[in-house]
């Protein structure tokens, strides 16, 4: 299915967010996730099913003021 990952369309095979992150190459990285503007905790990724067209945000630490 296709999801909008950080603003760009991506084709993924996995259904759950955890599987999708693995497939997309995020692995064990420290990131925070949201689906359709709702925060998804790391502990909830394995039971969060994605649907066609979902907007997935994957954010990492960065410099800030």
């Amino acid at each position: 299915m296709r999801i909008l990952l950080n603003g760009a369309w991506r084709e993924i095979a996995g259904v759950e967010l955890a599987a999708a992150l693995e497939e997309l190459g995020y692995g064990e990285r420290v990131v925070a996730t949201a689906v359709n503007e709702e925060f998804v905790a790391a502990s909830a990724r394995a039971r969060t099913a994605l649907a066609e067209g979902d907007r997935v945000e994957v954010l990492a630490p960065t410099q800030g003021g």
Binding site: G25, R29, V58, L59, P61, Q63
Partner: peptide
């Protein structure tokens, strides 16, 4: 110190490095 969050593609590693530094 203040920090933030930004989109990171799977090919990038900058966020992880920054967090290690902090």
């Amino acid at each position: 110190v203040t920090v933030s969050l930004r989109r990171e593609s799977s090919g990038e590693r900058s966020g992880q490095g920054f967090w290690g530094l902090i």
